[in-house]
Amino acid sequence: MTTTEPVVSVRNLHKRYGSFTALDGVSFDIHRGETFALLGPNGAGKSTTIEILEGYRDRTSGEASVLGVDPGTGGLAWKARLGIVLQSTGESGNVTVREQLTHFAGFYPNPRDVDEVIAAVGLQDKQKTLIRKLSGGQRRRVDVALGIIGRPELLFLDEPTTGFDPEARRQFWQLIDSLKQDGTTILLTTHYLDEAAQLGDRAGVIAGGRLIDIGAIDEIGGAEARVPIVRWKQDGERKSVRTSEPGLVVAKIVAQLGEPEALEIIRPSLEDIYLQLVADHAAAEAADLMENAS
């Protein structure tokens, strides 16, 4: 196995449902050991992409390779190397957490230890409880546990922390960190941009079935989008300046006005940058439509 070969490679991926184009030429690579966050609004094509890579959907055209295998034809030996946490699950859950994990561990050639996994998802106190009696967030943790029980090389996490309380989300982040340290490659979709910023090495933003930007988490959107903003109040009026030298700007304001009212220096978060990207894309689409119509 060459180390340079990407774990996931997608080229010009298209997916059409009848006349609706869900994916319109998406291309990206995910490298070994990397956590890649796929971001985008609802209906943008995130789940379609991830489900094609998991082998759940057929692609209309384009190329896809997951662990060196075409996901459309991947067999059991291929599936043994994947971990999949689906977006939603609603099984009847007539087994206990421990029974379910022990049972699923048996599917894999080299599973993780059941006790370790139960501890990693923080369900030690619930391990003898029937899954159907767990809360939504606890059931989600069982989903995550089932996704990692087989010691996957590649883990798909489709909105994994929906329904988690803040503490559970922090615990989950720690778990993902430890998986990353084990060398697990992760493809994550999430609506929580702080989560993507925390966990992701790189991100791709998908909108309208197209990848509108891709890059390292701290570079996506370009340098322009990351220019800090200095805000303050002057004579009861809000003022703001975008500057790459916020310290100097603040020093000048202080020299002029003394201590300014309501002073802030804001660095755009991943969320701000993401929202700007999606808004710009929507505006460009609308402009295109207008042009075509006229």
Binding site: Y56, K79, E91
Partner: peptide, 15 residues
């Protein structure tokens, strides 16, 4: 099991 996602989960495992 088809309706509640059990089979979809199995589809993603080497069972």
């Amino acid at each position: 099991e088809k309706g509640d996602g059990t089979l979809k989960r199995f589809a993603g495992t080497p069972l």
